[in-house]
Computed example of a mutant assay.
Amino acid sequence: MSAHSLSPLAMAALEHARSQRGLAPVHKHHIWSEAEERMLIARYPDEPTQVLADEMGLSIYQVYAKAKRLGVSKSGEFLRSNLGGRFDGTLGAEYRFSKGLVPWNKGLKGLPSLGRMAQTQFKAGNRPENWLPIGSLRTTPDGYQQKKITDTGYPPVDWKALHVLLWEEHHGPVPINLCVCFKDGNKAHIALNNLELLTRAQRMRRTTIHQYPEQLKSVIRAVSKLKRTIREAEHEKQD
């Protein structure tokens, strides 16, 4: 069976299994930006997945898997609309429980706990020790200051950079192909007049080796070559 004949759910599971085993993914890994996540959350419930995938230049499996991780699902109105012909009530009908069938665990409240399960299980309403309320602030390992704006339990959605919030407060949402950057490069200097919109290519040129003098470029290349040689030698030893 080819990968393209699998259902979106099976395809997502396949990609996860391959990543766990260190195998190359079926599709090239895509790093989602905050703007892309917001667009997916806003449009996925009411639009065909294939339309979003084509617009974003991704596979339908990548969009489906990301929606599952964000906890986003199709709306009832969309499912009833039968868009794309997939939700007419016939798909998978032969595998469903027949009407009137009583499940074996009806009336039971879970399965009995074994050993120390009862003492170690999470209780209703339990929150992890590192949980923080909406409005909390934190600093990421790479120096960006963030604020918690929602409490979905998914950090990329719950936390948003302060400088992006400031920009959007005055200029509206950041276009999907642009990013908010610091003019002086100081991530702690969060002021509207120190922010600007750049394309990702412009930001990359600003933060890569090309910004340095030629002599320093040569040193950086030499160090990178040395590190690469060391890594290759370590791999040969392991083999």
Rank of each mutant, 00 (worst) to 15 (best):
K183F: 01
V26S: 11
L52S: 08
E232H: 00
N177R: 05
Q145H: 13
A201S: 12
I190Q: 02
L197C: 03
E47D: 05
E168K: 09
S73C: 13
G125F: 01
R231V: 01
L9I: 06
A3W: 14
P156A: 10
L111T: 13
I220K: 00
P156N: 02
Y64H: 15
V174F: 08
G76T: 07
G185D: 01
W104M: 11
I220E: 02
V72Q: 10
G172T: 12
A201T: 14
I220W: 04
G185C: 03
L111W: 09
L216N: 07
R138Q: 15
K66D: 02
K183S: 05
H27A: 14
V51D: 13
N130M: 03
I134V: 15
Q119V: 06
Q146S: 10
Q20K: 09
F97H: 13
R127L: 15
F97L: 04
D54K: 13
R127W: 06
M39E: 07
P173T: 07
L108T: 15
G22S: 06
G143R: 06
G85R: 07
Y144H: 08
K237Y: 01
S224F: 02
H29Y: 12
K148M: 04
Y95P: 00
V26Y: 00
S5K: 09
L52K: 09
R221H: 07
H16T: 14
N193E: 15
P156K: 06
G110S: 11
T49K: 06
T139R: 14
Q146L: 14
T152Q: 12
Y95E: 07
K66S: 03
R205G: 01
Q145M: 07
A222P: 02
L101M: 15
W104K: 15
S136Q: 05
Q211N: 00
Q119W: 10
D184E: 01
R231I: 00
S59K: 11
R80N: 07
K147P: 04
Q119C: 04
K147D: 05
F97E: 03
E94T: 10
Q50Y: 05
V51T: 12
A191Q: 14
H171L: 05
L216Q: 11
K109F: 12
K237R: 13
K99N: 13
L40N: 13
K187N: 10
L198V: 11
L40H: 10
N126Y: 15
F87R: 04
W104R: 15
I190M: 04
M56W: 14
Y64P: 00
R69T: 08
G153N: 09
S19P: 00
L192G: 04
Y44R: 08
H171Q: 07
K106F: 13
D151A: 13
A17T: 08
H189Y: 05
